[in-house]
Design a binder for these strands. Structure first.
Lengths: 237, 237
DNA sequence: GTCATCATGTAAGCCGTTACATGATTGC
DNA sequence: GCAATCATGTAACGGCTTACATGATGAC
């Protein structure tokens, strides 16, 4: 799960751990405040697994001359380091880059329809956040699977609530609010699905077809279709 | 957390493990499908800790319609069961009853404002579900603490979203929907808080005061004030 | 010169999961 | 007799948390 999130962020650009945490929190709202005790080991695992590689700026081992990373923060750090003391690199700040193998792992994780965290809210939110890397049909499957889950939960809840219904006001309010939230989530997903169908049509009739990946132009039709969102609750402290 | 849920259910009535799971799922919607691998060890811990005690099956009153028909096999089963463990009922069900010590533990857990799971959605939902066992001021604190958390997350998200905002449509939709859900949650909590204030007033002006526990009569003023609910997402598979 | 922030990591532990193993009861 | 459901448990593991330890950089 966390690996998936990290790889997703690294698909876009090279980042160091601290920055990854920030992105996760601020940008996606997922893993609201993932702890370092969980983040760094995950990065180590990914590195050992060959999915990412650390580049530049390490204190201990001789990582050679600081390479031009192309990332803003990387170059700023390099500049600062050079200004302060040309011989010695800035402490730590291990910048990671995703490898080709990592990209393959990412696609596999993202598309996997079973396994750890593939059917909870967080797992869905995460996958949706990176849905642009998913081929259109997989994207649709993701949405429809989620929709089915939510719908099922809703009917189950209704069945249980309709009969007995001897809940006190607090529990009742809780259940009602949960139900309403789920309903809203479903109609949100429905809008996303609809937008997806529209996109599929305009793709077949439209100009080009790229091999599964969405290219650059958002801002237009798809964008306007989509509003709203699920109970994600990254939370944590 | 799970202990809290179990104790809360046992406050109401004696139950066996399998039934506890069912209640958690169907009635509260919390811990949507808590696994037995987690439930039974929890019950063991509680028993070891003196919070609950296993009692022989209480046949008639405890939700067990199942009439005895097959006398021969039934008695054989009873003999086998009794030989294996005295605390076990005829059908191998271990029915648990909460102890006085368990009630104390429950109140402590329910009221604790820090510690494991006291500030996530699930922890809040759980506590709210048992809010009737909480003294009025503690109930209010619970709601206000939750409100503050949600409000803070909201401002943080807005800060992060307002500036950069170079998200693709999928991530954007996710963030927007999350934000809306949080807003709805906040106004739900606000309604609960308002209802709580009303109750407090009608309590001081009203007839009796009981020592913290709400007595029997819901259905009236408080009930009508409350509608809606948070992103709980018990989920699981 | 000290404090806040940035930055990386380790160790212990909690809380839950899946997978496995077992047995009783009911309905056909 | 056999399958489905009810019912209880154990073992291994997963994923994330807290608490701890370390060190650099910049601001005042």
């Amino acid at each position: 799960m966390l690996e998936l999130a990290i790889l997703g962020l690294l698909e876009d650009q090279e980042l160091h751990g601290y920055e990854i945490r920030k992105r996760l929190r601020d940008e996606l709202g997922l893993f609201s405040n993932i702890s370092f005790g969980s983040l760094y080991p995950a990065l180590s695992r990914l590195e050992r697994g060959g999915a990412v590689q650390a580049i530049g700026e390490v204190g201990d081992d001789a990582a050679g001359p600081v390479p031009m990373t192309g990332s803003l923060s990387g170059e700023r750090a390099a500049l600062r380091a050079r200004r302060a003391s040309p011989a010695r690199g800035r402490r730590g700040r291990k910048v990671y880059r995703i490898t080709d193998d990592g990209r393959r792992q990412f696609t596999a994780l993202l598309g996997s329809e079973s396994g750890a965290g593939s059917e909870d809210a967080r797992g869905f939110g995460l996958r949706l956040a990176f849905a642009r890397y998913l081929p259109p049909q997989a994207r649709l499957r993701l949405l429809e699977r989620r929709r089915a889950q939510l719908a099922q939960r809703l009917t189950e809840t209704r069945a249980a609530t309709g009969a007995g219904c001897r809940l006190d006001p607090y529990a009742r309010s809780l259940v009602e609010h949960t139900t309403e939230s789920t309903e809203r989530d479903i109609s949100w997903i429905d809008r996303l699905i609809e937008a997806e169908r529209v996109r599929a049509v305009s793709d077949t009739t439209g100009p080009s077809e790229d091999g599964g990946r969405i290219s650059s132009e958002w801002q237009t039709d798809v964008h306007r279709e989509m509003k709203g969102m699920t109970q994600m609750e990254g939370e944590a402290r």
